[in-house]
């Protein structure tokens, strides 16, 4: 390969235990002008190589040999809060994907997504723009509206505003940010900001839940 690395190119690290998949994704990323700064096939390898690789984006399969994608997400975000993580999963939206997003992932894509969708998602995530599938948006809505969270008991800063709920609902019915902006007569940028804020609240929501749990169990008194 005789590529000249563009210093401004997005630095990506690919973590997946299927060599064929990893190679295909690596090739796609390089051809599109992105820099692959590292690969790993297990959670352990990923955590060992991450500090030296210094990627902008971690392309992470959730189902990898231990520690799994969720644990890797949490640990990597702890080490470098500015890291952007795009989670890939073969099994579709599930509790795993939601857990990874709560742990700090910025986006999620089904593995069967096309090459173009993947590249688009990597670029967005690198810019800090959340990449949701409709299915994931439905799960996140469920998280804020669900029976275990009786919205009112959460502190206001961890609750979604009416506008945010509306936007999330639109994402969950398959609308692109551009379409949402047009329908709500907002700028594209504003819609993205709302979605980022939803993601932030989801994580705070998670922390609120954990704190409440701790207090209920009498661990939080100290």
């Amino acid at each position: 390969m005789s590529e000249i690395e563009d210093p401004r190119a997005i630095r990506v690290m690919v973590v997946d235990d299927h060599p064929m998949w990893r190679n295909a994704v690596e090739r796609d990323l390089r051809q599109a002008g992105l820099t692959v700064v590292g690969v790993a096939s297990t959670g352990r390898e990923a955590l060992a190589r991450f500090p030296a690789a210094r990627p902008d984006v971690l392309l992470l399969d959730l189902q990898i040999p231990s520690p799994d994608g969720i644990e890797v997400t949490a640990e990597v975000v702890r080490q470098d809060p500015s890291i952007r993580i795009l989670v890939l999963s073969a099994s579709g939206e599930s509790a795993d994907v939601l857990a990874a997003v709560k742990a700090g992932a910025t986006g999620y894509l089904v593995k069967s997504a096309s090459r173009e969708d993947l590249l688009e998602a990597v670029r967005r995530v690198a810019d800090g723009i959340p990449v949701f599938t409709p299915g994931l948006a439905g799960l996140v809505l469920g998280e804020f509206e669900g029976p275990s969270h009786g919205g009112a008991s959460a502190p206001p800063e961890a609750r979604l505003t009416a506008r945010e709920t509306e936007i999330l609902r639109m994402v969950a019915t398959g609308m692109a940010y551009r379409q949402i902006a047009e329908r709500l007569v907002l700028s594209h940028r504003t819609v993205q900001n709302h979605v980022q804020s939803i993601l932030g609240k989801l994580r705070m929501h998670n922390r609120v839940e954990l704190t409440r749990y701790a207090i209920e169990r009498g661990i939080g008194d100290a």
């Binding site: 299927h18 064929m20 998949w21 295909a24 189902q63 073969a90 099994s91 089904v110 593995k111 069967s112 096309s114 090459r115």
Partner: peptide, 15 residues
Amino acid sequence: AVHDGVLQVLALVQR
């Protein structure tokens, strides 16, 4: 684990 493996391969073939 088996399902996931199958899904991975199906996704790859599709792609």
